[in-house]
């Protein structure tokens, strides 16, 4: 798009750059403020004359964080539940998406309609009966419970994403695999899955984020052993706790690695965000 009509005027371009820069600053400010706050000495965190930069950089908040919050355990729980539910839901979801994309059937179409309808269901409304089921299965406050719940929340999303992807693959691909002696399942595992890797990666990233960022389900279904970091973080708010430094430190620890990683894999995120909304 070089020298396109959209970018002709020079003066306009400077104005555009300036405006964009202002917006960038506005959008980055809250997060930078969080990081800076986590590096402040504890008295400064709740100073009534807040400043952006700390008077002295210190890791005190990070140190006390480990005393007041079992951060390691919570992050471990967040990670294990997110990664397990991602693996299971991406596998089962793409299996279903492939079946629905290649072999049409009436019950399949009905199922597809269900996956679409599910997206409109407010999580809060199914959260309670889900909680009841988990309780009856004797799984309350276990990582298994969260993995099961996240998997079922993610599956419709995976199907939605992958069906578009599989529809774009030529059917001859499966046929030639079948000619070469693969079964239907073999064709899926050995041919279709490997060449769908970019789509799978995008989908996996988003299902991971759905689980990792979840608060409501973990809030309802865990109390001590399976608690994830978002729930742990939210507890700082309940108590009359004015030592908020550790909270900001934990928030940074929880979000910064993901954010840096997401910048690295930007390509997949952009394609995933636009896959659903901008088609053809």
């Amino acid at each position: 798009m070089n020298a396109s009509i959209r970018q002709r005027t020079k003066a306009g371009s400077i104005l555009v750059q300036l405006t964009t820069a202002l917006f960038v600053i506005a959008f980055l400010f809250p997060y930078i403020y969080l990081i800076m706050t986590s590096l402040k000495p504890s008295m400064e965190v709740i100073s009534t004359t807040p400043t952006l930069l700390p008077s002295a950089f210190t890791l005190d908040s990070f140190r006390t964080m480990f005393d007041v919050l079992p951060v390691g355990k919570y992050i471990g729980n967040s990670f294990i539940t997110a990664i397990s539910s991602t693996v299971v839901s991406v596998f089962l979801g793409s299996l279903a998406a492939y079946g629905l994309s290649r072999f049409s059937s009436r019950i399949g179409n009905l199922f597809l309609l269900l996956t679409l309808a599910v997206r409109m269901v407010p999580l809060i409304s199914v959260a309670v009966p889900m909680y009841g089921i988990i309780n009856r299965l004797g799984l309350y406050d276990t990582k298994t419970a969260l993995i099961l719940v996240y998997t079922s929340i993610n599956i419709p999303f995976v199907i939605w994403m992958m069906i578009g992807f599989f529809d774009g693959l030529p059917k001859e691909l499966d046929e030639s695999a079948r000619v070469d002696g693969c079964g239907k399942f073999g064709a899926f595992m050995r041919i279709i899955l490997p060449i769908s890797l970019p789509g799978l990666a995008t989908t996996a990233i988003f299902s991971y984020m759905l689980s990792w960022n979840d608060f409501l389900m973990a809030l309802m279904m865990s109390s001590t052993t399976a608690k994830t970091l978002p729930v742990g973080l939210s507890e700082f708010l309940g108590a009359y706790n004015l030592d908020l430094g550790p909270m900001t430190a934990a928030a940074v620890l929880f979000s910064l690695p993901v954010m840096l990683f997401s910048v690295m894999i930007q390509r997949y995120i952009v394609s995933g965000m636009t896959m659903g909304a901008v088609k053809e």
């Binding site: 089962l92 979801g93 299996l95 279903a96 492939y98 079946g99 629905l100 290649r102 072999f103 049409s104 059937s105 019950i107 399949g108 199922f111 269900l114 996956t115 599910v118 269901v121 409304s125 199914v126 309670v128 009966p129 889900m130 009841g132 089921i133 099961l148 719940v149 998997t151 079922s152 929340i153 599956i155 419709p156 199907i159 239907k184 899926f188």
Partner: peptide
């Protein structure tokens, strides 16, 4: 056989959704 294959492909995902979405809706 196509219909059966389709069913086998989405049955595992469907059972998850029935247990944790359809059944909860019914309970709701």
């Amino acid at each position: 056989s196509d219909r059966r294959t389709a069913f086998l492909f989405f049955a595992p995902a469907a059972s998850f959704m029935i247990l944790f979405f359809v059944y909860p809706m019914f309970l709701l």
